[in-house]
Nucleic acid binder design. Structure first.
Lengths: 202, 202
DNA sequence: GTCAACTTGGCAGAGACTGTCAGAAGTAGT
DNA sequence: ACTACTTCTGACAGTCTCTGCCAAGTTGAC
């Protein structure tokens, strides 16, 4: 299995690529539909596979875990995050850089409705939240060197401050998105994020 | 099953209570030993049960999940946390109250070595971290009303600020404990916690 | 001693996930 | 078009966590 193909711009777009793209999308849509219809825990892999018209084995080849069926391409989240922050001007402070990263990631969702649906599922399903938090932790670790550099700390040292700053930013994003869901998607998450950060750093 | 007995101070201390206490301890020690010896993921429930001299079924009756085998009595963590914060004087600020809670929880570990062992396992095992984070999230929710009251916010409103503050405190605790583990348990976690908070709120 | 309350172990089974393997389907060389 | 090669798929069996159920044993209260 070598799924690197990723539909590059001037793609060769072999039949395999297109087929995989299609299957992947079909699985993803079926999963999201069933999750919202009957809940995450109440939906089995077997059911998703059946309704998507593939075998369980194939489903697991596309998405390594059940959690991966939500959140689509989470790899991109981390990528966009680190890229955006890395591109911030050197004179920008840590918090400005982190804010820019958060904004970029939030802009990644297809639509407000889809984002709301995903966030709602995420915040209401314990088993999902756990996996999501863990994945986010990996993003945080990836961000560490960038933040350390901006804070003037020795990169890779045992200095906990950079980690605390990054984790705080995510904590605020979490609080903001939860409030956003509670408000049924009214308003802007980024505004809520700013509000949270102000409350913390006040 | 009614395991409420919990060896109250002037306990009746029936034979059942003592037996359960013993079995629980035996299981816990066996689990921690095997986890540190061969890793969390590489240790199966079957093995723990066998070496602890109980059936798998009984093991699951004592500890609902594999994760529960680490962290001992996590219920107490949340209890101590909310109790301590609730007992703080009204004129104490949010951050002082939260710090007191954190200190109380940290004081709960039996020994420095055991705490170090647990933290190390926790931070190095992805599957464990996920569950731990999720459990912590529940503590955070429990704390919410207390913090909201102290911040003068409408309790139960969609105000994300209290959630952000609580999450930030935990984020700092996380960063502090990770640095502590990296330093092989040298120094005081609470000092690191203060350092983190200063970096965030600085 | 009797009976109720409690505890235990074994069994069967669900559900997520993995390794393996034969075979189908696409791709490329001639 | 024929062949050789790579890629993908489905099926099967198996592992591991976790749950429901039931029969048997132990303890406690009277």
């Amino acid at each position: 299995m070598k799924q690197e193909g990723r539909t590059a711009p001037g793609a060769p777009a072999t039949l395999w690529d297109r087929t995989r793209q299609l299957a992947s999308q079909e699985i993803l849509e079926t999963a999201l539909r069933l999750f919202t219809e009957q809940g995450y825990d109440e939906t089995t892999i077997a059911q998703i596979a059946r309704e998507a018209g593939v075998s369980q084995r194939t489903l697991f080849r596309y998405f390594g875990t059940k959690e991966d069926l939500l959140g689509g391409d989470q790899g991109r989240f981390g990528q966009v995050l680190t890229d955006t922050i890395g591109e911030q001007p050197a004179e920008a402070g840590v918090w400005e850089a982190l804010r820019a990263g958060v904004a970029a990631v939030l802009a990644l969702h297809d639509s407000r409705e889809q984002a709301l649906e995903r966030f709602r599922l995420l915040h209401n399903t314990a088993s999902l939240r756990a996996g999501w938090l863990e994945k986010r932790l990996r993003f945080q670790e990836d961000l560490l060197p960038l933040v350390e550099a901006r804070m003037g700390a020795a990169v890779g040292s045992a200095d906990p401050r950079a980690r605390a700053v990054v984790a705080t930013a995510f904590a605020c994003l979490d609080a903001a998105s939860m409030a956003w869901v509670d408000n049924d998607g009214k308003g802007d998450i980024l505004d809520l994020y700013d509000e949270c950060l102000a409350a913390v750093r006040g």
